[in-house]
Design a protein around this nucleic acid. Structure first.
Ligand SMILES: [Mn+2]
Ligand SMILES: [Mn+2]
Ligand SMILES: [Mn+2]
Ligand SMILES: [Mn+2]
Lengths: 218, 218
DNA sequence: AATAATTTTTAGACTTGCCTAAAAATATTT
DNA sequence: AAATATTTTTAGGCAAGTCTAAAAATTATT
């Protein structure tokens, strides 16, 4: 059996490895889980003992095959519950993460697969993140950071890199939710601000920071 | 804050008090939660400290106002999730209890009320048990144990007292699910067995035990 | 290469929740 | 009322998971 805490560590290691493409460090894991390096070391020993990670002292960790399988299943559950909360219960996309963080730990034979079926096998969650299927396969969808567009390029909002409520609410306010169309008018040389035109013809200026946290499909 | 374990104790005390109408004993709580009397005593001290129960050594416990409120909210969550699992995900009524046992602990502002709304404000769960509303008010529906009917009485199945999978599956097999109509033909004097006629004209003999675990509305 | 800075691990302690065995209190029987 | 049986509490201990402070290892700088 695997505890909630262990599951959370596996997911954290998965996410770090996804970005960094090298062994996850103790400090990175501590930051991701908002805990201390000492607690992380304790847990890494336990996870290594269970063969869920490959752990070398001072060298960071990588998930084992089984660890990877478990982390993927957890992410699948998390994202499916987020879809449920938004599509069926009417929550906003900035309200669902903490609830999904709890729901992902519910254990049950075909609960996830039945949920998946009920939701119509969604491929992406409310933040545009891909949902692995029952076999752990990931959907792929080409997308670029808004910051990489060139003036004149048109795109559709497909996801976010920053998942904070503050950012998501700001996007709501701007009308830049998933599926929103936009066109890059120009990039201001002084501070890399981005002037864009929205579907309904409004012109908006976005900071460089926004440009680096918003994904669009060209 | 209140832990999962504490919530489970409050619910257990509520259920015992509901049946017995007097202070719940340490042993009764231990039996309900399948734990030891010593563990129960430990927890009762903690709950008393938090003013969730009135606890007198050797005299059993009763829920405080706040304890009652929390236990009611927990039962509401448990039963609403059971409705979701059966109505929306297509689980059988004998498969949902353990899942609801986990889902009831998910904490979130209006999660329960949104779920309630999504489900259309059901008043009873898949086992016929009443679901308290957001204010903690219980629906009442008059019903009698099948064993109390007299020959010639007709009734509709409205609930079960025994919630075990074995009993629920047996009822499925007999076609005696919620809403099924039946008529008591006779009670066998020798062993109090009950001969009944179902909607579709079948004659079935049920043990005294079944008669004491099946609720019907006359 | 030596020193300084940073990262990681160890040591020791705390909380929650559980357990078994023994002692104390209460209830039942004789 | 005394003896016996049952229930409940206490005592002591264990595992998971967390923390702070200190030690050890690694990395960066001079
Ligand atoms: Mn999330
Ligand atoms: Mn998400
Ligand atoms: Mn149940
Ligand atoms: Mn139920």
């Amino acid at each position: 059996m695997i505890s909630h805490a262990e599951e959370n560590y596996l997911k954290a290691i998965f996410k770090i490895s996804e970005k960094e493409a090298k062994a996850a460090s103790t400090n990175a894991i501590a930051a991701e889980l908002q805990t201390t390096a000492a607690s992380v070391t304790d847990m890494l020993k336990r996870l290594a003992e269970k063969n869920l990670i490959a752990y070398e002292k001072y060298r960071g960790v990588e998930l084992s095959g089984e660890g990877n399988r478990l982390a993927t299943a957890l992410i699948r559950k998390h994202r499916l519950w987020e879809v449920f909360l938004v599509e069926k219960l009417g929550f906003a996309w900035d309200e669902v993460h903490d609830l999904a963080e709890q729901l992902e730990h519910v254990q049950g034979d075909d609960l996830v697969d039945r949920l998946d079926n009920f939701l119509g096998h969604p491929k992406f969650d409310p933040h545009g993140d891909p949902i692995p299927d029952a076999q752990g396969r990931w959907a792929f969808r080409p997308q670029s950071l808004l910051a990489t567009l060139k003036p004149g390029d048109r795109g559709v909002v497909t996801g976010v890199d920053d998942h904070s409520a503050a950012f998501l609410q700001y996007l709501d306010q701007l009308g830049l939710t998933l599926g929103a169309q936009l066109e890059l008018i120009e990039r201001i040389p002084y501070d890399q601000s981005l002037r864009i035109r929205t579907q309904d013809g409004r012109e908006i200026t976005l900071s460089e920071k926004v440009g680096h946290n918003l994904f669009v499909k060209i």
